[in-house]
Design a protein around this nucleic acid. Sequence first.
DNA 1: CGCGATTTTGAGCCATGTCAATCGGAGTGG
DNA 2: CCACTCCGATTGACATGGCTCAAAATCGCG
Lengths: 235, 235
Amino acid sequence: MLPPSGTLCTRPPPVMRRLIRSAGLSDATAEVLRRFAGTVEHYPNATILSAAGSAPRLKWILDGWTCELRVLPNGRRQIFSFEIPGDPVLARPLNAVRPCTVMTLTNVECLDVAQLLESAGKAERREIRGVVDHALSLAEERRYEKIVCLSRNSALQRVAELLLEFHDRLSRVGLVDDRGFNLPLTQKHLADALGLSLVHVIRSLKTLRLAGMATFRFGRVSAIDRDGLAALCGR
Amino acid sequence: MLPPSGTLCTRPPPVMRRLIRSAGLSDATAEVLRRFAGTVEHYPNATILSAAGSAPRLKWILDGWTCELRVLPNGRRQIFSFEIPGDPVLARPLNAVRPCTVMTLTNVECLDVAQLLESAGKAERREIRGVVDHALSLAEERRYEKIVCLSRNSALQRVAELLLEFHDRLSRVGLVDDRGFNLPLTQKHLADALGLSLVHVIRSLKTLRLAGMATFRFGRVSAIDRDGLAALCGR
DNA sequence: CGCGATTTTGAGCCATGTCAATCGGAGTGG
DNA sequence: CCACTCCGATTGACATGGCTCAAAATCGCG
């Protein structure tokens, strides 16, 4: 499938510009991305991001949040990870329960990586592969970190570590300003990701707020004391 | 590097036969493995399985146990996974702390996968790649399972789930007999893998023993009630 | 303005961690 | 053969972090 060059710049994409800048892509590769502005896929909030065929498909998030999750037999949810703009995420076939499904947490715009690679030149293809592979290995490393965090950290430390992770990842793609960052999650989401009860997450956030380390309100995290949080989780 | 055909069958390898059988390899691929009997790498107990250069190297375990672990800043250990005969394991460069290092838990015999692939024909190469990739994806899935287990399960359930995992994986490579299986670990290892204190692991094992679900003594697990364990962890 | 979803707070309980002491087996030197 | 030591396994007492249940407050939205 060719890139729809006819739709070139139908949608001057600020999110795409941000992605290009934050991933440090070359001009040629950036141009490949721009040619794809017309094939951006849109998913509404709270939908499952799935692959049509039987093979999983890798997507590249331009805007919005997703999470990897599984619904457990007892009805509870386990959230494995969150993805933000610039992250790749593997959309699996709908029937696949294992290891997880991907769900949008906001409206999401993304590109299909395989489709992107098809229409890129050799050099650009290598570059895109490199960037995506690197991001995937970071995601894998975060899974190891998560195991450590769940095994060894107190509730307070887990919450602090997650906020810290969000802060660092979001700031790398320019989504943090000096007053904080947007976090389109409920505290239940945090609980499901951290293996804690909702009530205890609320208490932990309160403790952080009173300690002046971070405030989470109205879908926004502000008053962040990065060093304080880092010290709290033993960095 | 060519396979050392001169050393053909210097060591009629029962572990290799088991691997060939359990992985369901074709005769041709089995022959490739057999030609490698002479290049089996040996590592003593309690050593780090590392790659010489700067790139990680994939090893294929023929005999013995290893684990992926990290030593945390506070001196405690986090064990991420255990590998048994038939498993691939990624030996990383010595300086790499992240995401983990691989340590032997017994004497270990293994093959270098890249070396193996080099000397295999095209068809055998594809087959070996398929088997190894499949095993790697199972390992990744186990990391997701581990996150669920650490988030949601009680200490008793975590211990039961780990024993169950050992039972199922070992039985797939013929290392379980009707009286149980060998488990070359201390209870401290279990504690480090499960995110529990040593004392509580001991208590949980006692509970399982008294409930007639499993007995762990002298490096051996016996009296296993597989269904009971499965029910306990909510399967 | 009313309703469902989310956040907040309190009370009480239980699982798990920590600390400390003991026990047993395997090696080791005399 | 015995005394000694080390390591792993075991047990008890106690403290506490996090869970559950229940109720109230607040927010978002039609």
